[in-house]
Amino acid sequence: MTAIVDYNAGNLTSVKLAFHALNCEAEVTQNPEVILQADRVIFPGVGAAGSAMRNLSELKLIDPIREVTARGTPFLGICLGTQILFDFSDEDFGTPALGILPGRVPRFQPCNPRDKVPQIGWNQVEYTHQHPIMDGIENRSEFYFVHSYYPAPDNDEIVIGTTSYADLRFASMVAAQNVVATQFHPEKSGRIGLKLLRNFINWNP
């Protein structure tokens, strides 16, 4: 069973519907036991890093998340879920995060006022390393993004895809052992996003 972690950070309906579309059994849950027992874990989220970390703590989900990422359970971070896997987010006047991936999460600071924040819409992901999660998906395919902050890993080794926005090229996909994480929303990225989720379901790290 695939667990979709619900920590009151945004709407999980589209994630759930995407797994329905793939005929994959997925349970939206706040229960630490269900997460610990899951074959795979999806860690989504939209909203702000500060309240996300508070919710995780109140729901006693921090340790279960650390445990499943440490012991090899295939784990997919999405958007805010990806951002709080890092050490620190600049959001909400600075938010210490989970520290599962080394790096921080700064805000876009566009020089050109026509680069709007949040970035909303479809942007290309350019591969920097091969990864099974992108099997059968063409390099530079577009995915749907909605975000004002972006992952800045300490180490380029974990970056598997990058995207250009607001005068910089940021890490839009990262992977380390059993963890893979996207800044974009595969669940809202049409047929190509579904393909990525299908690859995740079939992935055995």
């Binding site: 309906t13 589209s14 519907l17 995407a18 329905h20 579309a21 749907y144 909605v146 929303h185 669940e187 809202k188 990225s189 049409g190 047929r191 996003g193 579904l194």
Partner: peptide, 8 residues
């Protein structure tokens, strides 16, 4: 509509 499409 949500059940039928995979875009925002």
């Amino acid at each position: 509509v949500a059940r039928s499409i995979r875009i925002p």
